[in-house]
Simulated assay, not measured.
Amino acid sequence: MSNSSALKVLVVDDSNTIRRSAEIFLKQGGHEVMLAEDGFDALAKINDYQPDLVFCDILMPRLDGYQTCAIIKRNDRFAELPVVMLSSKDGVFDKARGRMVGSEEYLTKPFTKDQLLQAVQQFGTQASGAA
């Protein structure tokens, strides 16, 4: 994979383990990675860092993944930013709710390196293509 396809990816999860494994997988795929611990942290970093794609955990303290995604999508500057939800539950209801707030995709934890990189390839390039 050449560096021209390197994307800026923000991973939002209150679990240090998940953040670290996502970071390792994404860096192995040649991408730039930024980490956030919760929704508020994520919103500040999206503003500063302007990622191509966001992976966002659903169950987080203070601001959950649905709320975080909804805020991102309501902001005109970031409405096109693809958001992939991460959850340890593989529920139909959760997936539907994720779509309602505008997320592109839903990955169940623990995810594999392939799943993560495939999502980046699929949605990240779509974002940079639209810019």
Score class of each variant (00 low, 15 high):
residue 5 S to N: 05
residue 121 Q to C: 07
residue 36 A to S: 11
residue 75 N to G: 02
residue 18 I to T: 08
residue 104 E to K: 14
residue 59 L to E: 14
residue 85 M to D: 00
residue 6 A to H: 02
residue 79 A to Y: 03
residue 40 F to Q: 11
residue 43 L to Y: 08
residue 33 V to R: 03
residue 39 G to E: 11
residue 73 K to R: 11
residue 130 A to T: 11
residue 1 M to T: 11
residue 102 G to S: 09
residue 25 F to G: 00
residue 57 D to R: 06
residue 48 D to G: 11
residue 72 I to F: 01
residue 119 A to I: 12
residue 72 I to S: 04
residue 55 F to I: 06
residue 85 M to Q: 03
residue 82 P to H: 04
residue 10 L to R: 00
residue 7 L to I: 01
residue 116 L to Q: 04
residue 44 A to F: 10
residue 33 V to L: 06
residue 93 F to E: 13
residue 108 T to G: 05
residue 58 I to F: 04
residue 101 V to C: 09
residue 29 G to H: 01
residue 105 E to A: 14
residue 9 V to Q: 00
residue 78 F to P: 04
residue 17 T to D: 14
residue 92 V to W: 11
residue 6 A to S: 13
residue 123 F to V: 05
residue 117 L to M: 12
residue 14 D to C: 02
residue 80 E to D: 14
residue 13 D to N: 04
residue 41 D to K: 05
residue 82 P to S: 06
residue 60 M to K: 02
residue 92 V to Q: 09
residue 17 T to G: 01
residue 39 G to Y: 06
residue 70 A to G: 05
residue 47 N to H: 15
residue 11 V to D: 00
residue 111 F to D: 02
residue 128 S to K: 15
residue 108 T to R: 08
residue 28 Q to R: 15
residue 91 G to T: 15
residue 62 R to C: 00
residue 107 L to V: 11
residue 131 A to G: 09
residue 64 D to A: 08
residue 104 E to N: 12
residue 59 L to G: 10
residue 59 L to S: 14
residue 95 K to Q: 14
residue 55 F to T: 09
residue 75 N to Q: 11
residue 124 G to A: 01
residue 115 Q to L: 12
residue 21 S to R: 06
residue 79 A to L: 01
residue 67 Q to W: 00
residue 45 K to G: 03
residue 15 S to I: 02
residue 129 G to L: 12
residue 115 Q to Y: 09
residue 54 V to Q: 04
residue 31 H to W: 05
residue 36 A to C: 05
residue 32 E to N: 08
residue 12 V to L: 03
residue 59 L to N: 15
residue 123 F to I: 07
residue 106 Y to T: 10
residue 125 T to N: 14
residue 103 S to N: 01
residue 129 G to R: 11
residue 16 N to R: 13
residue 92 V to C: 02
residue 17 T to K: 02
residue 74 R to L: 08
residue 57 D to K: 04
residue 110 P to S: 13
residue 18 I to E: 01
residue 22 A to F: 15
residue 37 E to Y: 03
residue 6 A to P: 02
residue 83 V to H: 06
residue 45 K to V: 01
residue 131 A to Y: 14
residue 78 F to E: 01
residue 82 P to A: 05
residue 17 T to M: 10
residue 39 G to F: 12
residue 80 E to Y: 09
residue 4 S to G: 00
residue 60 M to H: 02
residue 118 Q to T: 15
residue 118 Q to A: 13
residue 15 S to K: 02
residue 65 G to F: 05
residue 116 L to T: 09
residue 123 F to N: 07
residue 130 A to M: 15
residue 49 Y to E: 12
residue 52 D to W: 04
residue 36 A to Q: 02
residue 107 L to T: 12
residue 48 D to V: 03
residue 111 F to Y: 14
residue 41 D to F: 07
residue 109 K to Q: 10
residue 42 A to M: 05
residue 37 E to C: 07
residue 56 C to W: 01
residue 118 Q to V: 10
residue 117 L to D: 13
residue 4 S to Q: 09
residue 77 R to V: 12
residue 122 Q to S: 12
residue 51 P to D: 05
residue 127 A to V: 13
residue 106 Y to S: 10
residue 31 H to P: 06
residue 58 I to K: 07
residue 113 K to V: 06
residue 6 A to T: 06
residue 121 Q to T: 15
residue 3 N to W: 07
residue 52 D to K: 02
residue 65 G to A: 00
